[in-house]
Design a protein around this nucleic acid. Structure first.
Lengths: 215, 215, 215, 215
DNA sequence: AATGAATGAGCATTCATTCAT
DNA sequence: CATGAATGAATGCTCATTCAT
């Protein structure tokens, strides 16, 4: 967790009120931004959600932009940290591991993911650059997996960077249509997308009948 | 062309001034909405781009919402119409045809495509429903292709609807990173994504012949 | 008159409403700024005085600062113009002419004068510089009078610039205590200050009894 | 020293911390008020200058208005007290003594003097009345000097109260343009203004002897 | 078809001040 | 004495929209 909220307990619970409020602001803003978009959300609405007067928000965030920045930066940090401490079996095929991790994380943190894509253009350039750098770091993880796998002959990818973007776009689209309680469970979706991704980069299927593939 | 403008073109160039203005409004709004988002764009900005006072916009569109609706509805109509009159060889494999069409169209109409994804939530429910219906019609085209291809044994897709969304998400992500003049040409990209899509739904290497693979 | 209001009649009374409103805004702002100070006056108050909603003010002035700038710049321009077209007998002693003009003008335009002194620090640097330049031009008029008079032996001034500031400060103080209907009429005040100013720069009184002054 | 701080100094340095803070608040407020005007200065700014949080100011002053009142009342008291204990030779001509005292005091306490003129209108009526009374007391000093001098034939003043205001306005204008290190030293200015003031109220050259002037 | 002026609601933000800790 | 958090009101300004001209 890279949330600013994490700093709460430094000096014990001496002044927990403000930290709680800040956390509730983050929470309310996240939902509102995801639902209506940054520009369409007013500080008044966030304040009302939190149960506080608008002016009080400024005890916790300098500006509205600062709330967005906080949400997006901590989301990216959380994502990378979550991958680093991903507890999916390390014996699993790396692509499978990445796909399963990505789907699970993106379904769990749908709002964070959504605004991190939708609100990029509302970030001030400096913050935009930070988020972009983190995004590239995340993509690099998959690119590296593809490169290594290709070198080992497990995958066939002409352009690992392109394949990276293609797979990530494919997976990231899931939360936009997945609805809990639908026909397909998260498990089902995970398996289906895993197969699509795996096949997309699979070594070329032997021209059907050529048994000479043991090279 | 499904642009509202087209609908009144019937009587020749009798009233070219207003039509022209309306077209310039559409053009300006399209660029602004794509760049900053519907909520962040003001009628004043659009008017300034067009070279007209804000009030004049209301001679051409009832409301700001109406401009968005016009752009999104006509985009969806244009997209479906473009598919219907797609001139890619009808002897081409249907999936290949769809992929090539989709990539070309989405790279050519990047702004329209972008806002049709980003601004869905800013559409009033009624307009939203129309756009959604069109989108489903478009997706149904690919789903149908996959179903038919699967029936013919050309593709293997466990869940054609899921595969549809996966492929479309994959392809639609292209304009977000493609830059003209980059290392890869549109042609290159088309081939790369075509291969990814094709393999993703390729029939599993016939189990009979894969016993010699490193299971 | 250098007031923007003067531009009103360019194209006949075709759109007189806006010009009238702008004039009323200037008038209301002038009184409020003089009474309470620029920083303490709200756009809402001005709008209420004018009988208009706050937003309407922005059809006539870009910002609150712009109103202040308009008032101060046009005051300085008016002042210099008034001096140029001053109809006090040109046969009058120049100092007398300046003193009478200054007192009359400053008693007539008390509010404008007041804010032009009090609100200098609330002007943005660029506008401040303009006003300061005008003020120096105005002071230069008196300095020139003193210099010429001294050269002609009519006045004795060791430092014309210092004497200028001294006299102007003395005269400009009048509106801060003068109240119409008081014991002294404007006429009285004019004569009294004229005498003080005249004597202040009078050639040194001959050490009382030395009749040798005909040099 | 008439500072409110002085009034609680009775028990020695028993509580130096609070006294120090109050003094620093006064100091910071003085500079800010002089630079930007009372209305344009926020308690937050003062607090920041002092190195304290806004709420802490209220341990030393009841309100923002109270700080202004404190500064202005103590300035007027200090001014009168300084005159009373003025150490300029008592054999000096009283007008000269007043002029020299006034210039020196006003150049030394430029900020205090400045706000005591500029912020009068921001004083609540009660405090305003007190300051006005003190100001009249101060002016009365010069009026008395002129009256006595006139009675003794040393000066000629038709209206001592008018002359008082004229001279004080003249002298008080100095700090608005004087800059240390300029061409004229404080000494120079003192002499120049002294001469102007002296001559302004000088007895008319005895009419009997002025027949030879260029009437 | 376009303008200039207006509206009424809303915006992000700041303010002086309070008060429990 | 100082703090951090809050309030309630206000601030300058922008907005989509209307409408007489």
């Amino acid at each position: 967790m890279a949330n600013a909220a994490a700093k709460t307990q430094i000096r014990g619970p001496s002044r927990p009120k403000g930290q709680e409020t800040a956390a509730r602001v983050r929470e309310a803003a996240l939902k509102r931004f995801a639902a209506s978009g940054y520009a369409a959300v007013s500080m008044r609405e966030i304040a009302a959600d939190v149960g506080v007067r608008p002016g009080a928000l400024y005890n916790h965030f300098l500006t509205k932009q600062d709330i967005l920045k906080d949400l997006m930066l901590s989301h990216m940090a959380d994502l990378l940290e979550a991958w680093d401490s991903c507890d999916l079996g390390s014996d699993m095929d790396p692509l499978e591991r990445f796909v399963r991790f990505h789907i699970r994380y993106h379904l769990e943190k749908a709002d964070e993911v959504f605004i991190s894509y939708m609100e990029l253009r509302n970030l001030e350039p400096e913050n935009f650059d930070v988020v972009e750098a983190e995004r590239r770091r995340y993509e690099a993880i998959l690119t590296e997996i593809l490169l290594e796998g290709a070198a080992a002959g497990r995958y066939a990818v002409a352009e690992p960077k392109v394949a990276t973007r293609a797979i990530i776009a494919m997976l990231t689209g899931i939360p936009s249509w997945y609805r809990a309680g639908g026909r397909l469970s998260k498990q089902d979706i995970e398996e289906l997308y895993l197969e699509l991704a795996r096949k997309a980069v699979a070594p070329d299927a032997p021209p059907s009948l050529t048994g000479d593939r043991m090279t």
